[in-house]
C-alpha cells in the first residue's frame, strides 16, 4: 500500500510536503513577469513626468531670464515710466488713468540713455522686445498672451493713477505652451492640450 504524504512526513521529517522547484520556478516566473511589467510601467511614467517637468521648466526658464534682466534694469534706473510703445514712439500713460501699459521706459543713470521694453502683439512669434538707445531691437520673449504687461502700483498693490516718487513696477508675463508629451486634443477645442503660465514680479525703484 502506498503511504500517504502526511505519514511519510511524520516518519521522515526532512521529506516535508511542499512545492517542488518546478512549481516555485513557474510561480516565480509569473510573479517576476508581473513585477517587471509594473516596474517598466512605473519607469515609463517617471520618464513622462520628467519630460513634462523639463518642458515646463524650459518654458519658464527664458521668461525668468528676461524677468531678471528687466528687474536689474529697473533697480539700476534713475527713472522708469510705464506707457505705450508703438511705431518707435513711447507715450507715457496720462495722469488720472491707470498706469498700465505695454511698454516700460528705463532711463539709464548718468548717461541719459533710454531703453524700452515693450510688448507687440502684432509680431509673431516674438512679442516682447527691448529697444536700446540706438534704436536696436532685441527679441526677448515669444508667444505672450497679455499685452499690458507693465504697471505701476503703490505699496498696497493698487494701480497708480498719479505720479509717485517710488512706485512698484509690476511685470506680468502670461503665455501658453503645448503640454508635451501628455497633451490630448479633446472636444474642448484643444484647450486641454495647453498649459497656461504666469510669471509675475514686483520691483521697487527705491535703492
Amino acid at each position: 500500500m502506498k503511504r500517504s504524504i502526511p505519514i511519510l512526513c511524520a516518519k521522515f521529517p526532512w521529506k516535508r510536503a511542499g512545492f517542488t522547484l518546478v512549481e516555485v520556478l513557474i510561480s516565480s516566473t509569473i510573479f517576476v513577469s508581473c513585477l517587471v511589467l509594473a516596474l517598466v510601467a512605473v519607469n515609463l511614467y517617471g520618464m513622462r513626468v520628467y519630460t513634462l517637468a523639463a518642458t515646463k521648466i524650459t518654458a519658464t526658464a527664458s521668461a525668468r531670464k528676461v524677468m531678471n534682466q528687466i528687474r536689474e534694469s529697473i533697480r539700476s534706473a534713475s527713472s522708469v515710466s510705464v506707457g505705450y510703445y508703438s511705431n518707435a514712439v513711447f507715450s507715457p500713460i496720462p495722469l488720472g488713468t491707470n498706469q498700465i501699459g505695454n511698454a516700460l521706459e528705463v532711463i539709464v543713470p548718468g548717461s541719459g540713455f533710454t531703453n524700452f521694453y515693450y510688448q507687440d502683439a502684432t509680431t509673431s512669434p516674438t512679442n516682447l522686445w527691448m529697444v536700446d538707445q540706438n534704436g536696436n531691437k532685441t527679441p526677448l520673449l515669444n508667444y505672450m498672451t497679455n499685452v499690458n504687461c507693465f504697471s505701476e502700483q503703490d505699496c498696497y498693490g493698487t494701480n497708480l493713477l498719479v505720479f509717485k516718487d517710488s512706485p512698484v513696477v509690476c511685470v506680468t508675463f502670461n503665455f501658453v505652451q503645448w503640454e508635451f508629451p501628455l497633451a490630448a486634443v479633446t472636444n474642448t477645442g484643444a484647450l486641454d492640450a495647453y498649459d497656461y503660465y504666469r510669471l509675475q514680479t514686483r520691483v521697487s525703484t527705491r535703492n
Binding site: T60, Y197, R198
Partner: peptide, 16 residues
C-alpha cells in the same frame, strides 16, 4: 497692514 490673495504662479491647464 496689507493682505492680498492671489493665485500661485504655477502652470495651469486651460484658459486663465
Amino acid at each position: 497692514v496689507v493682505t492680498n490673495i492671489d493665485f500661485m504662479d504655477m502652470p495651469t491647464k486651460g484658459t486663465p
